[in-house]
Simulated scan of single mutants.
Amino acid sequence: MTPRSIALLAALAAMAGLPACSSPQSEQAGSDGAETAQEPDGLAIETADVMEIDGVPIGSAPGTITLPPEARVAVTAPFPGAAVRVFVIEGQRVARGDPLALVRAAEPVQISGELARARSAERLAEARAKRLAQLAEEGIVAEARADEAQAEYEQARATRAEAARLAALGGIGPDGTMTLAAPIAGRVAHVGVETGGGVDGMGAPFVVEAEGAYQVELQLPERLAREVRPGMAVEVALPGADGEALSVGGRIIAVAPSIDPATRSVMARASIGDAPGVVAGRNVSVAIRGSGKGLAVPEHAVTRIAGKDHVFVREGEDWTARPVVVGATSGGLAIIAEGLEAGETVAASSVAELKAQGAE
């Protein structure tokens, strides 16, 4: 055997005696910051610690987004007529004073004529009252005639003032046209007239809704009736554009004093701010927050097993399904009333696979 062959055999023997220098990692950080445990069966399970939070939701209730009573303003025409032009459509945003429609009516033309006649009669009555007052001072006529003339002048002035007020309504022009304007800034919620259509003085051809302030009408279950108070914080769950749930905060502003015997619920009202997805008439779920502390886990860590809520808790190297009582859900978290302790580790992913393994 050559010296080169002997050296090669010695090197191979030395490499065979070395221990393995790499092995699969048991844990690695997930992309969202959660720990991912590599299980023996190949499952990559993201974990989450049971955390303690403040302002625990004491419960959830269904609600409907509404506008405050003062947020809806009807726009009426002071005189019946015909719509010459309509400047807005439903849903359009308007500023205060923006024109909504131009209406022509016959009555304003008559009122303008009456105003002109009333002004002329007022000037005539004023001149007559002054003349008779001077004659009464000189003793030429009786004071009673001067008093009568003064009374006629006061009546003429009142008639002129009334005609002027009527003529000033709706920005009436000399041709009898009136401009209906938006009384507040907001959104045109209703347009009840078309160009060429009639407008009467009893109906409201336009309704404008103020934006920026909304309310939620709640139906509190009987168990929450004694706990909810004005001033408590609420969170309204809304669907986001990318599928992610959004939440809008607010406060309870009123709670009804009695329970509805038909529904066994209590009506309440909360104020919330404006946000994408906040639309009057939308049905939402509202979480009501108390002042205490509680425990929370990711909402998707909770699963139903045999009709009850469970989470998978790490116990040593195993995952154990443990029954829990969920008090409420809010902002992607499930508030746990019973069944867990702070600091315990639960499975935040692959819950369906763990559930299937447990059923085998």
Rank of each mutant, 00 (worst) to 15 (best):
125 A>F: 07
270 A>C: 12
161 A>K: 05
115 L>P: 00
57 P>A: 03
19 P>R: 12
139 G>Y: 04
47 T>L: 06
257 P>D: 15
337 A>Q: 11
5 S>E: 09
286 V>I: 13
88 V>D: 06
218 L>T: 04
222 E>W: 02
115 L>Y: 00
45 I>K: 00
329 T>Q: 14
60 S>T: 15
227 E>L: 10
214 Y>M: 02
197 G>K: 07
112 S>G: 15
223 R>S: 12
156 A>M: 09
319 W>Q: 10
244 E>V: 12
322 R>A: 01
272 I>F: 12
76 T>R: 00
314 R>Q: 15
266 V>E: 13
190 H>A: 10
333 L>R: 10
305 I>P: 03
357 Q>M: 12
264 R>I: 10
230 P>D: 07
50 V>H: 05
329 T>C: 05
311 V>P: 11
178 M>A: 09
73 V>R: 07
355 K>G: 10
74 A>R: 13
229 R>F: 07
320 T>V: 10
15 M>H: 05
163 A>F: 01
20 A>F: 02
295 L>G: 02
1 M>Q: 08
180 L>T: 01
121 A>E: 07
103 V>H: 07
148 E>D: 04
353 E>H: 03
213 A>E: 15
161 A>R: 11
212 G>W: 10
170 G>L: 00
244 E>S: 09
194 E>D: 06
61 A>H: 00
284 V>N: 13
40 P>W: 00
87 F>G: 12
9 L>W: 11
335 I>M: 14
305 I>D: 06
306 A>G: 10
287 A>P: 03
291 S>Q: 15
325 V>H: 14
100 L>F: 09
257 P>E: 15
127 A>H: 08
212 G>Y: 10
223 R>E: 15
80 P>V: 05
128 R>W: 03
123 R>D: 04
339 G>N: 11
136 A>M: 01
98 D>Q: 03
113 G>R: 10
223 R>K: 06
198 G>M: 06
239 P>D: 14
227 E>R: 13
141 V>K: 04
339 G>R: 13
320 T>A: 09
254 A>Q: 14
32 D>E: 09
218 L>N: 02
196 G>E: 00
1 M>I: 04
24 P>M: 03
348 A>K: 13
357 Q>H: 12
48 A>S: 09
275 A>L: 13
351 V>N: 12
4 R>A: 12
144 A>P: 00
229 R>D: 14
1 M>T: 05
209 E>T: 08
141 V>Y: 08
59 G>H: 06
293 K>I: 02
215 Q>H: 01
213 A>M: 13
70 E>W: 07
147 D>W: 09
69 P>C: 02
120 S>Q: 05
347 A>G: 06
15 M>W: 02
145 R>I: 04
301 A>F: 03
169 L>F: 08
325 V>Y: 06
25 Q>M: 07
352 A>N: 04
321 A>H: 04
354 L>I: 03
107 E>I: 02
216 V>C: 05
300 H>F: 03
